[in-house]
Design a protein around this nucleic acid. Structure first.
Lengths: 194, 194
DNA sequence: GTCTATATCGCGATAGAC
DNA sequence: GTCTATCGCGATATAGAC
């Protein structure tokens, strides 16, 4: 692995462990066993490291969020998308922990974030809408229900993990499944039972 | 106002604006127009200031979270509780933005947080349960539904505000009402219509 | 590409005068 | 209770040898 990539791996680990504020460029270099000067050869500063980690996360999102194009999507597919989203958020958990501060500190990063996030939400919205069209879900006439359901599912997929972290319990796979159950609870009253 | 209280007010404002990490004790003293030495007379360090701010938030929660004892609670009461919760979270918005890092850094604070949070969740659970008992809500036989609904309502009341912040739009009262609507969306399928 | 050495800066914290 | 002065430390960042 290239030095640049090893810097990113180490930074990600340290950021997840104790946060970007307490982890200095010196810490990263020392944990990796290289000199501070060497690190500065690869990245101009800590901000650039953070940007690069965000871009890696964005790329993973774009890979994992897609659905099978050859058949109609099922509720299983929705679960799978949310499960994958949880997994990535866990791997990059420093991101959501510090998101507001990080975006405030870096306008360029903020623009990128808003773009990628909007794409992600549109995907969720289209998915729920497709379920309605396919008869998997039956919604009431009120046209406000669909957007609200999409927002709720999105909110859960973004914040379930931080919610568990705040509770103080160590994260485990059962927590992930519980988050899936909460998401399904929101949709359950509208699921057309066979 | 005492100097101690003015320090807390200034620290709260600065923490909300740019986060605890970038705000030093020097910054707080300078913004307030006192000397760094004076600040250290009132607080041993920044950690103590943060603890004091958390305690102020806890006290406000305990005040605002109670329901009228002289009559059965209504869905209006639930909305009011959540609305008040949003207001406090906005006033102390640095808390949720940095919660995981702050609790990790201060074990004492973490214990206090878990205590207060558990009380708050129990209140929500009891409230939803009371609605079922009073016939305002009718739930299916599945005993897992009640706890899931309580968790969802709780999740929304905790994370709706951070969710709006992350979206990049400036906060406004309409966002608060939209958060209320999302919470009601979760309960709506179970509300007994007259 | 990687190292060592170093310059500059600001933070946290304390001592002691008033 | 509030101030000034100051010390020690660690972080960011760069220069220049290898």
């Amino acid at each position: 692995m290239s030095t640049r990539e090893r810097i990113l791996e180490t930074a990600l680990r340290l950021f997840n462990e104790t946060g970007t504020a307490t982890v200095s460029t010196n810490h990263i270099a020392q944990a990796l066993g290289i000199s501070p000067g060497n690190l500065y050869y690869h990245f101009r500063n800590k901000e650039e490291i953070i940007r690069a980690l965000f871009e890696r996360l964005f790329a993973l999102w774009d890979e994992g969020g897609s659905l099978p194009a050859d058949r109609p999507a099922t509720l299983e597919d929705l679960q799978q998308v949310v499960r994958e989203s949880y997994r990535l958020l866990w791997e990059y958990r420093f991101v959501y922990r510090e998101l507001v501060a990080l975006l405030r500190h870096d306008e360029h990063l903020r623009q990128r974030w808003l773009e990628v996030r909007a794409r992600g939400f549109d995907g969720f919205y289209a998915l729920i809408d497709a379920f309605v069209a396919a008869g998997v879900l039956r919604l009431p006439d009120d046209p406000a229900v669909l957007p609200r359901l999409a927002e709720l599912v999105w909110l859960i997929s973004e914040f379930w993990l931080p919610s568990v972290e705040v509770s103080g319990e160590p994260m485990n796979p059962a927590h992930m499944e519980h988050g899936i159950a909460l998401m399904l609870q929101v949709l359950d009253p509208y699921i057309v039972k066979p």
